[in-house]
């Protein structure tokens, strides 16, 4: 072991040939041969060349431990969230089919072409639409939330529109049922039930806009 200045001594060595190995952190090690004679002091100076610095590592970059460490539970939550939102997306797209059919069937309700069959078909399609819609919505509503995430961008618009068409998907069937009842009684549709068509159109428009908001870049 040397002192802080690098000086060393190895006293009382028997005469002979020796190998002196010198090493220090950050420097290249060196081995030199030394011949020690009897009753002599043999000075040996060794100069070490700079060693290869260690390659950079992630710990050199100053990231926090939290940033560098994986979280399997978080990944499982993300996987479940994505899975549920995929179902939400597919069911949401599927809902457009009965929704469009309901709109077409509405053309045969309440006008000159009014018939009981047309009214029943429209009501049945509306019920299917509401069923698939709320099933789809439940997958979005109950998908796991990710802590510390605040919605921004098109998904925020998508969620705001959901409040509109979600409300519409409650009101439209209720008003429709009232209108159905009134027509069945041989009455003209009156009162708040007369807003069934208008609310339906707003709901349809908000639903289409919600799909567009996450599909097309504006």
């Amino acid at each position: 072991m040397t002192n802080q200045a690098g000086a060393y001594s190895v006293p009382n060595l028997p005469p002979g040939e020796y190998e002196l190995s010198v090493s220090a952190e950050g420097l290249e090690s060196k081995v030199v041969k030394v011949t020690v004679a009897a009753a002599e002091t043999q000075p040996v100076d060794v100069v070490l060349a700079p060693g290869m610095p260690p390659p950079p590592s992630l710990s050199d970059l100053g990231f926090t431990r939290q940033q560098l460490t994986g979280n399997p539970e978080e990944q499982a939550r993300l996987d479940r969230r994505t899975h549920m939102l995929k179902i939400h997306q597919r069911l949401g797209l599927f809902t457009t089919v009965p929704l469009a059919a309901t709109v077409v069937a509405s053309l045969f309700v309440g006008g000159r072409q009014e018939s009981r069959t047309g009214r029943n078909v429209h009501a049945a399609l509306g019920a299917v639409t509401a069923g698939t819609y709320w099933t789809s919505a439940s997958f979005a509503i109950f998908a796991p939330k990710v802590k510390g995430t605040k919605s921004s961008g098109p998904i925020r618009v998508h969620k705001m529109l959901a409040w509109v068409h979600g409300t519409g998907m409650v009101l439209t069937p209720v008003l429709g049922a009232m209108a159905y009842h009134q027509l069945g009684q041989g009455q003209r549709v009156h009162g708040i039930a007369s807003y069934h068509g208008a609310v339906g159109i707003v709901t349809l428009s908000a639903y289409a806009a919600a799909i567009m908001s996450v599909s097309i870049k504006f």
Partner: peptide, 17 residues
């Protein structure tokens, strides 16, 4: 032949290093 290991412990790193 013998092998001596001398470990240099330096507080002040020389310029060459």
């Amino acid at each position: 032949k013998e092998l001596l290991c001398v470990c240099l412990v330096l507080l002040a790193r020389p310029l060459a290093a």
